[in-house]
Write a protein that binds this DNA or RNA. Sequence first.
RNA 1: GCGCCCGUAGCUCAGCUGGAUAGAGUAUCGGUUUCCGAAACCGAGGGUCACAGGUUCAAGUCCUGUCGGGCGCGCCA
Length: 586
Amino acid sequence: MKDQLKKRIESTLALLISQQSLPADISAEVHLERTKDRAHGDYASNIAMVLAKPARLNPRQIATMIVEAFPPHEMIEKVEVAGPGFINFTLSSAARLQVVAEVLQKSGYYGLSNYGKGKKIQVEFVSANPTGPLHVGHGRGAAYGSVVSSLLSAVGFAVHREYYVNDAGRQMDILTTSIWLRYLEKCGEQITFPSNGYRGDYVIEIADSARQQFGDALRHPASTVFAGVTADEPQGGDKEQHIDALIQQAKQLLGTDNYRQLFDLGLTAILDDIRNDLAEFGAEYDEWFSERSLVESGVVDRAVEQLKSTDFLYQQDGAWWFKSTEFADEKDRVVVRDNGQATYFASDVAYHLNKYQRGFDQIIDIWGADHHGYIPRVNAAMKALSQDPDKLKVLLVQFAALYRGQEKISMSTRSGEFVTLRQLREEVGKDAARFFYVLRSADQHMDFDLELAKSQTNENPVYYVQYAHARICSVFRQLADRKLDWHEPTGLANLALLTEEHEQVILTMLARYPEIVETAAINYTPHVLAHFLMDLARDFHTYYNAHQFMVDDVAVSQARLTLIAAVRQVIANGLGLMGVSAPQLM
RNA sequence: GCGCCCGUAGCUCAGCUGGAUAGAGUAUCGGUUUCCGAAACCGAGGGUCACAGGUUCAAGUCCUGUCGGGCGCGCCA
């Protein structure tokens, strides 16, 4: 409808120019938008005001010319000039009503489109280090990433959801060492746990299973373990050096095979937990991509070699540096350390190069806002490797500050003092948690009040939307109880009886839904959908309170039932995209 | 110091990429149930869109500066 209108405006303009009513040398893109106020019709265009200056005419004068020359159309009831020079279009009743039949006919498919034309798009999200359970901070990325993926899929992209598993590197060594030290405690050794180790209870649980699996086979006397290890921070030493020394001890005393087995035990336990957690949260993945696989298959080394061949890599102080300042980064970055070890950045370059090579048309990374400083160097590396920088889009999700009432909760994985995503789900429920996370735009800092989210009352907007759905279901149950019937064809045939203001508002909302899905998908703004659903629910509740659906006039009754059946469908579709359930009873 | 995200009602936030009288929820106050679910609805009060300039028919929205908040700036990951 909108596109048809646009074309008609454009051809009207062309007509006016050919009649020399307007100068020939003017041009502007016709912009058409939904009106905020129903008094302004359904659509409005500002084209007359945009053309006023180049045409050297009064905007209202231009608008009047367009309106008078505008060809009549059965779908358009009236076209009029308003305000400073807007052209308002009011749709005919028939045009407004047709959405009901469309919704019911397409049912679960209503709102889907082929905007993306099957283009391959990869969405990588969460990708938290497998060094501990996911916490509520990761929850926001999980909810956001999964809804963005669903939206993109809904508008016709072939979406590939991926989790990058950082299963190589120092953090994993710290985890492995932490597990080992807890294991030694289980064996009866007296251990002073390093201040930089992972302290969560889950480490102790993994140590328990290590004990079951290995018995005392990995046991070494504490005196041997700590022999020659530099002091920890509380003892006046450096905590980083201390933990590094302990890692070396672990590798040496355990030997390669045992160390690797312990490493894998921890990795598997935590990764299984994360997988399970995300699945229960409704965040599904197509692929779990291992960093270690990149390293071990030599892909990282090849990427480094490839960089070396570009003139953007140079050697200094024994290390290899990437000249990212050539691409607007603030400083150059080390790719290979003086000890010959590739940096994390190197594997990230390799990983992103790999994404390009897999042939995605669009690559989306969803990162926590704390990684924003990382964007320029990744972009720089891709440019240096002659990849199209426009294909890569990094979306940042701002932090969710956690509150319990007025009190701010500090979060730290190392110390083990954090609220896990699992705890949150258990307390709040999946539906409320997802809706709450996605309610705010991602680039907005958000205060997540656990007390508020926990409260299973009207304070939580998800119930408001779900209630609208359940309420409609309830109407149809009542109908059956009263031995009445909903006959869809009768309803569709009598839609013209929906003349109430509330009904007109709802019709507009139903028609807007596909536009909302598209907007939300293209701009990666799922909160737009959340807000739409709240608005639609409000419009329905208002309607519900103002009018009866089961009235004596069969034609009116059937028409109204048909309308609310369409509302129910759209709410269900929208909640479905958000990964939130649409209950029939609650 | 530099970079990124912000600053809108008492509080939490929208504001459709520049449009018409800046909106919701919540909180406060007042009302609605012999009637399909009151987890709902209706009404009222509440604003210098941080501040100052600029761009134009039009600025909460764009540009510059100032102030304030969050985050990041390692041969860590």
